[in-house]
């Protein structure tokens, strides 16, 4: 970064670059805002699949913006073109900016070639949320799945992204797994590129 390590004196305050500022926002404020987002969308739908889709759409818009921002800020206007590159970009760079930490794990699906999973023991958006029993397998992580989808789609890696609860042995709370299933064209291109 330019100018790191020495403090330059600016005579005119307008010449001074804007500081990056505090990078974190209040978790409480976020939790209430997210809770409102879920509650609002709940009034607009009549089934759970629809609610999931709406949360995903809300996340998609975030993902598209985050990709632009981070490619510019962290990657010097470059973006990843390879599958593993973009996945680790999501797993580390995107996660760190959005949630203040790297995701707990990034794995390749064992059954299918085109599936990858990002797992998080305690997803930030789910920190205060208990899903009622009658909502079945619904996961508010759909919002995060939407973010991931937004990033991947706009980087040229179309994929279907879903959020699931996965129980862990010996733990009361299940973890959340973001399942990424890439489109055929992505895998074909990847195969061609690695020749």
């Amino acid at each position: 970064m330019i100018g790191v390590g020495k403090m330059k004196q600016y005579s005119n305050v307008l010449d001074k670059p804007l500081s990056k500022g505090k990078q974190e926002v209040s978790l409480t404020a976020f939790a209430f805002l997210f809770s409102e987002l879920v509650q609002y969308n709940q009034t607009q739908v009549d089934n759970i699949a629809e609610l999931e889709r709406r949360l995903e759409d809300a996340g998609y818009a975030v993902g598209a913006r985050v990709l632009e921002l981070l490619c510019n800020r962290e990657k010097g206007n470059r973006r990843e073109t390879r599958l593993l590159g973009i996945l680790s970009f999501v797993h580390s760079t995107v996660w760190k900016v959005l949630f203040g930490k790297v995701a707990d794990s990034l794995e390749k699906g064992t059954e299918h070639e085109d599936e990858y999973m990002i797992s998080e023991k305690e997803l930030l958006v789910n920190r205060f949320i208990s899903i009622p029993k009658d909502m079945g397998t619904f996961n508010c992580g759909a919002f995060v799945a939407g973010i991931v989808k937004g990033v991947l789609d706009n980087a040229g890696f179309p994929a279907v992204v879903t959020a699931h609860f996965v129980p862990i042995e010996g733990q009361q709370r299940p973890r959340t797994t973001i399942l990424i299933k890439f489109a055929d064209e992505v895998l074909k291109r990847e195969a061609r590129l690695s020749q």
Binding site: F32, F34, S35, I129, S130
Partner: peptide
Amino acid sequence: TDYVLKNPFYEIEMPIRCELFDI
């Protein structure tokens, strides 16, 4: 305030059924 009021599925003034609160 954390696990009940921030839960989007809790209706205010209604009986509390939140797994995280119980835990």
